[in-house]
């Protein structure tokens, strides 16, 4: 059984897009947060890899690179009891409130 992330040699591939995108602020944060938690020994690379590999195929393929990082980091932090989904939901609502309406 082959899983989605294990894509070496898949024959449905097209041309390689060489466009570089400028990192958004939240992507810089996602990158740094992930690294810091690794340096502090709170989680390791193989754990977040595993969480990404366990994502359903549609999510793995549709999320952007750093969205996958954040989704997998949340899975691992929830697993370790450092955050709960509900806490993150509440904090998102709080932030949305602070950021204001469109």
């Amino acid at each position: 059984m082959k899983r989605t992330h294990d894509m070496g040699g898949d024959t449905d591939a097209g041309a390689i897009d060489r466009t570089e995108h400028a990192m958004d602020d939240w992507e810089v944060l996602a990158d740094a947060l992930n690294q810091v938690l690794g340096v502090k020994g709170i989680k390791c690379t193989d754990e977040t890899r595993r969480a990404r590999e366990d994502m359903d195929s549609e999510a793995y393929l549709s999320l952007s690179y750093y969205e996958r990082w954040i989704a997998s980091l949340e899975t691992i932090l929830v697993e370790k009891g450092l955050v709960t989904r509900e806490e993150v939901d509440r904090k998102v609502a709080e932030l949305e409130n602070r950021w204001g309406e469109p």
């Binding site: 059984m1 070496g8 040699g9 193989d46 890899r49 590999e53």
Partner: peptide, 12 residues
């Protein structure tokens, strides 16, 4: 063989 969980041996 297929081993469930996280492995670093690619399918191909």
């Amino acid at each position: 063989h297929f081993k469930p969980g996280h492995v670093r041996t690619p399918f191909y």
